[in-house]
Design a binder for these strands. Structure first.
Lengths: 206, 206
DNA sequence: TAGAAACGATACCCAAGGTATCGTTAATCC
DNA sequence: GGATTAACGATACCTTGGGTATCGTTTCTA
């Protein structure tokens, strides 16, 4: 029964147009960069009128944000390893790789733009960062349960210490986000967060 | 003898105008935010013509960058404690305080704008970040010499781990940059970077 | 004094963001 | 099937701020 749902008068919105806009936005921003593209370009590339775009999104940033969430987001899954701590290590590597890809610049752009746009900042934080951050914190908890990580650490701060340096380098350009860096970061992180070896229970030494 | 210096023809540039522009820029950006102010506003507020501003700087961001460097920069000195490690701890607190001040938003703005402006990014990194970063690394080295920090750490990565989380929170808004956070960060950092207590030489326990 | 560079004030041009409008299309309702 | 509604692409239009050009005046050197 369709009952409680309000009958929809008028022409329905075209999902084709919607998807075309998102695709166009992602393609253009990846190729030319955020500042270089215009709303006109996105609309033209998508084969839609500008008003069609504005009926759905308030501005360029919002379109690009949704393109990231809907087209890129599903491809970034948290890896699953036998051991939680290994998942963290692997995920750091994937994050570094992601930042080195064309999406690194996209993240930079959106994060930058969000400093001037409160709505965008909220969307970025709540819909991109927090879900991923929540995942990290879950895995950290598991690592603690598995006896690999100390239980007296603050998980929010721990997450900041793991990912902060990557964002720092992404935005400030003080160093490359390569495997060597990830190794150093992980090793130095472990030194302070791992349960000391004399206390670990099921330690299999190679 | 004035010798090798090229004789300066024409009217000399007014240092008063120069300073007035920097002061106006800092005042306006602090009060209204980077995006909200215009070049016209800065010039009018400084009592100069727009061309006067453009003769010295290519755009608004460059003016504000120089205002930060010349008017704010001198007030941010690295603290000096008896023990290098204490200096680090103290500096983290000062950095947090700085980010919580009106200059936190200024740093965010410039860092954001620099994602779209290569020249600005270079200026920010080389003239704001690197000098400060270099200072941190010097103090870390001293702490190693004083036997407080391990010598097998990567200093660049260490610096990223100390300051990355602050920038992360500043830009992403995932948490407040308060004393509790600094305490957690410092403690967790120490756990992995401090020379183990059985190896420390001049340890005075309270 | 002539020439040069800088000055404040002002005019001007351009591009992109964003809004308005038009004829057509795709839906529901009677 | 007709009336009404909302969406559609195409187009026109307005505003704003960045940035450039120009003018008469000022401040310097040669």
């Amino acid at each position: 029964m369709k009952s409680l749902e309000k009958p929809q008068l008028g022409r329905p919105r075209s999902d084709d147009a919607h998807q075309a806009i998102l695709q166009a936005a992602l393609q253009l921003v990846s190729a030319q960069g955020f500042r270089a593209i215009t709303v006109n370009q996105i609309a033209a590339h998508a084969g839609v009128g500008k008003m069609t775009l504005y009926r759905r999104w308030p501005n360029k940033a919002a379109v690009v944000m949704d393109a990231l969430l809907e087209l890129v987001g599903p491809e970034t899954a948290f890896p699953s390893s036998a051991r939680a701590l290994d998942s963290i290590r692997e995920q750091l590597g994937l994050q570094a790789k992601f930042f080195r890809s064309r999406y690194g610049r996209l993240i930079r752009s959106l994060l930058a733009e969000s400093q001037f746009d409160e709505e965008l900042a909220t969307a970025f934080r709540e819909r991109w960062i927090q879900p991923r951050r929540g995942g990290v914190i879950q895995v950290l908890k598991t690592a603690i349960q598995e006896g690999d990580l100390r239980s007296d650490i603050d998980l929010e701060t721990t997450t900041d210490m793991l990912y902060g340096p990557l964002y720092y380098r992404l935005l400030l350009g003080t160093g490359t986000i390569n495997t060597v860096f990830i190794d150093h970061l992980y090793r130095q992180f472990l030194a302070g967060h791992q349960v000391p070896r004399t206390k670990r229970t099921d330690d299999i030494e190679p």
